[in-house]
Amino acid sequence: MPPKLADVVDDFAAVSERERLQLLLEFSEGLPELPERYREHPELLEPVPECQSPVFVVTELEDADDATPALDRTVRVFATAPREAPTTRGFAGILVEGLDGLPASELLAVPDDVSDRLGLARAVSPLRLRGMAGMLGRIKRQVRESASA
């Protein structure tokens, strides 16, 4: 697991179940705003229908010289979720913080069970945890498609 994401998982493991919900809310407040190019063109973002709330994600592989293999290029991760959906927004915040800036190969190697590793299974509905897994799945698929293009 990449260090930034492992730190997030460790932060959740270090606190009580009740504090985990508070930590999730802090991540919801920390989700960065979308860059202007996406705020003005929301159709460029992909919806995540597994989420109960309207969540959208998009990734970019940063430009590199032609000698840099696609899987070594840095991935930028962007997401948006409504403020009135703090759980979903928190999951998006965790993924953006933990995945943004990784090389594509490292992002693609992230375990699919990240949502389970946060220790929120008793505090958050399984449907919401599936939503986070859906976000991660879409992010990975976008990176695979960009890397192979």
Rank of each mutant, 00 (worst) to 15 (best):
R73Q: 02
G90Y: 04
G98D: 06
A81I: 01
E97W: 04
D72Q: 13
D63L: 07
V75Y: 05
P86T: 09
D66S: 11
V96D: 09
T68V: 02
P86N: 06
V57C: 14
E62K: 13
V57Y: 13
R83W: 06
D72Y: 12
E60V: 08
T74R: 03
T87C: 10
A67V: 07
T88V: 15
L71D: 04
R73D: 00
E84C: 10
E60D: 08
G98H: 11
F91H: 15
T74C: 03
E97S: 04
T87W: 05
I94T: 01
D66R: 10
P82M: 02
P86E: 03
T87R: 10
G90V: 06
V58E: 07
D63R: 05
T74Q: 07
I94A: 00
D63V: 05
R89V: 10
L61N: 01
T68W: 05
T87K: 08
D66M: 13
T88K: 02
P82Y: 15
V96Y: 13
V75P: 02
R76E: 08
E97D: 13
I94Q: 00
E84P: 15
I94D: 00
G93M: 04
T80S: 05
E97Y: 08
T74P: 00
F78Q: 08
T59M: 11
E84R: 07
A85R: 01
E84D: 05
A92I: 04
A81W: 13
T74D: 00
T88D: 12
A85F: 10
V96G: 03
T87I: 12
E62R: 05
V57N: 03
V77L: 03
G93I: 12
E84G: 14
L99R: 01
D72C: 07
T80I: 14
A79K: 11
D65L: 02
L95Y: 01
L61I: 13
R76C: 01
L95M: 09
T87Q: 06
I94S: 00
A79T: 01
E97T: 09
D66C: 10
A79C: 03
A70T: 10
G93Q: 12
G93L: 04
A64L: 08
A81T: 15
A81L: 09
T74F: 10
T87M: 06
D72L: 04
A79Q: 07
V58L: 15
L71M: 14
F91N: 09
V96K: 10
F91L: 07
D65Q: 14
E97V: 05
P86V: 10
E84Q: 13
T59C: 12
T68D: 11
A81K: 01
V57L: 12
F91C: 06
P82D: 10
T80W: 15
R83F: 08
G93K: 11
D65W: 01
I94R: 00
L71S: 08
A85N: 01
D66A: 15
A79F: 12
V96R: 09
T68N: 09
A85M: 02
D63F: 14
V77F: 08
I94M: 07
F78I: 00
L61A: 11
V75E: 01
A64M: 11
P86G: 06
D72A: 14
A70E: 11
V75F: 08
V57A: 12
A79P: 06
A92V: 11
G90C: 14
L95T: 02
F78W: 05
